[in-house]
Amino acid sequence: MADLNQLPDELQLATAQHVKYIQSLDTRKDEYDYWLTEHLRLNGLYWGLTALHLLRHPDALPREGTIDFVLSCQHESGGFGAAPGHDAHMLYTVSAVQILALVDAFDELEKRGTGKLKVAQFMARLQDREKGTFAGDEWGEEDTRFLYGALNALSLLDMLHLVDVEKAVNHVVACANFDGGYGVNPGDESHSGQIFTCVAALTIAKRQDLIDKDRLAGWLSERQLPNGGLNGRPEKQEDVCYSWWVLSSLSMIGRAHWIDREKLIGFILRSQDIENGGISDRPGNMVDVWHTLFGLTGLSLLGYAGLDDIDPVYCLPKSTVNRVLGKSM
């Protein structure tokens, strides 16, 4: 591979190729990997669709087909699986709600699904009412990712009252570390991904006052490496996906200007596959829809031209969040 850090300055966002790449994802049924990753299908749809909205091609995937597929993943319990026949899980349920929010189809839940309430109850039941934590499913794995997911989807559904938000907030606070960051569980080291979930959860709960903002932002800003990319923890490699976890956290607490904007833009653009579309974890590597979305959300937070604004709390276009939450534009 040629040294991709040396690409020309005039590097542009390859919008048309990215759209084509995302459209092609569901046509690869003759590839073994397509089947090995079926447990990510619903998430993949969310990643791809959100990316298309940011790229201003919201209709590049058919709306009806999208809704049909989402509803085909729903269980009687109200929860969603990754694909038909897959067990329900918090992560898939959140993706389902986000997709339906994107295509403005909550009413389809009432018409053809179990109804909003049951979806919300599925998630609410996963809260441990003593500790405030959330499990991913009936088997009990706990993680602040699930807590955030629940608060995200429940607030979109306007059903936050079904859970004990205060207890959830207490748990997030217990995950805080001396360095201002947050870990998977109380006592675990700070990690950019987990920081995003905790800061976003506190933001949804309107409790940002509990965040040690300067210290946290200091730690987050040190995630930027000389090549412009961001890493997830000290002494680790950079990766495009942290453009989202780190930068969204900084944005939420009003410190996005604590990193070098131009350098990060350059890093993300260099990670594109200019010919075939898609963005990879770092320049020269294989692309996938996950890094494609988080490269684009990163660019969007940086105000890169030609992209719609992303909401740093919900990881949905701002216009979607405003519509759903009834805010004025």
Partner: peptide
Amino acid sequence: INTIKSNMASHG
């Protein structure tokens, strides 16, 4: 972070 993603896909 967001999911149980297969590392068969694309990291690194």
